[in-house]
Design a protein around this nucleic acid. Structure first.
Lengths: 260, 260
DNA sequence: AAGTGGTCTAGACCACCAT
DNA sequence: TGGTGGTCTAGACCACTTA
């Protein structure tokens, strides 16, 4: 499954990223060479360099200023990614925690196959009776329970010969993402999330070793494949005293130049 | 300050957006014409069409599938933007509320000039003594107080002849964004935000007509100009029962094709 | 095999910012 | 005025999906 023939854009991308990581442009203003120079150095066309720089810009790694130059966003390079960025990127918190060196422990509270019930709407299942794999977990890091998570995966995504063992396979996987890729051969393209503040309440308090009257971040989400098929529903609660999320906010489309 | 000579990419962008809004591609799968066809119709090169489509894709309006086609993300077209999207876009909540037809009321609780104190670090001011404009507001919509916001703007951003009236001018502006553009001639490029869950507490409860033991979303942020000068610090609290934020989460950079 | 988006080039000109 | 990023073109070929 390894791709040969890595596109030039991605090679340039990697070069630039590792140059930035190595602190190549860490001097005063962090300005990169001009696009023309980069094109010469990498022996590619300027369009290819621009493509790579555009991707770095949308990722927030670099800031381009018309008539001035391209600069590394030093805030990003100075602040290593962690659980804080989980809400911005789309991947499991277990991965986010391990990449931070947090050594997370996953405790599976429940893994069963049940009718979807009210979740059928969000998962675009025809009826409340369609079966889903329910996975309830608590993630602990450095001895403290941080996250309670409840996932529902439509059983129909699993090849029929594996459906009987669905609950088992899911509970043994590192994360829902990996489970979907390994057994369902599908990949999460994006997630639609909603975040709000709630009180822990009795159930969460007991599994998170928290007080019922303490605040939590509640993130509800649906993951979709590239062709907009719902892959799973998630309801996650984060201890308000231990977890926060970071985000870079930026206007995306500039639709202000309306002529009419 | 109006730009003539609107770039072709932006014109194509607008055409596509209004076509999508008009429901031009609202049939079954929402597939757009091929890039080659669009280029022919708009009488531009395919590269220009691709540029426009790329921007729509990063904005989440459109999904491109290699070898298949380009499709409108019907979730986005079906769910009109509102305050929920405030945390993803970077603009004031007053604008977000008005665009929703919410008719927000702004109550200025305080507008004074004070030493920056502990906020000097985040605003990259040389000393705690540097003056900032403090602006404390409550935003009410449909009779309910939704948001408490505290902003601190370095006084030095204001032209010296206006600094004496700084607090007044800020309190009379619709939003901090407009104040910065109108009087300081600078524009917010992006914001670094952090979101967490807290309890309201005594002060917030009184101004938000809420109970002290109820949950709030707490968003702390610093806005930067394109050359990374901090423009303002913001500390915002949202009533947990009335406000939630939506977000599309998606992996940004694909750095998995690491050859070495 | 036909149609789609993805990559890549070389070259041109424009718009912006500093000096 | 010189250097930077932004726009734009025409054409080529590749990679992926579907039938």
């Amino acid at each position: 499954m390894v791709r040969r023939n890595i596109p030039l854009v991605e090679q340039v991308l990697h070069e630039l990223v590792s140059d930035i990581d190595r602190g190549e442009y860490a001097h005063a203003d962090g300005m990169l060479p001009s696009e023309a120079d980069l094109a010469l150095n990498f022996k590619v066309s300027r369009a290819t360099v621009r493509d790579a720089l555009s991707r770095l810009e949308t990722a927030g790694v670099v800031i381009r200023r018309h008539g001035v130059g391209t600069f590394v966003n030093q805030f990003v390079t100075e602040h290593p990614a962690g659980l804080q960025d989980w809400f911005e990127e789309a991947h499991g918190f277990v991965d986010a925690l391990t990449s931070l060196g947090g050594d997370p422990q996953v405790l599976v509270l429940r893994s069963v196959i049940e009718p979807a019930g009210e979740m059928s709407t969000r998962l675009q299942l025809p009826s409340h009776e369609n079966p889903v794999i329910i996975l309830e977990k608590v993630i602990t890091s450095a001895g403290a329970p941080l996250i309670h998570s409840l996932n529902a995966i439509p059983l129909a995504l699993l090849p029929s010969e594996l459906q009987a063992q669905g609950a088992e396979l899911a509970s043994q996987s590192d994360s829902t993402f990996r489970f979907l890729e390994t057994y369902c051969h599908c990949r999460v393209h994006h997630q639609q999330s909603e975040i709000r503040a709630t009180l822990a309440g009795a159930h969460l308090a007991s599994v998170l070793a928290y007080a019922p009257t303490e605040p939590c971040l509640r993130v509800e989400e649906v993951a979709y494949s590239v062709d907009l098929v719902p892959l799973f529903y998630g309801l996650n609660h984060f201890r308000g005293d231990l977890v926060s999320f970071r985000q870079i906010r930026r206007p995306t489309l500039n639709l202000t130049n309306v002529p009419s």
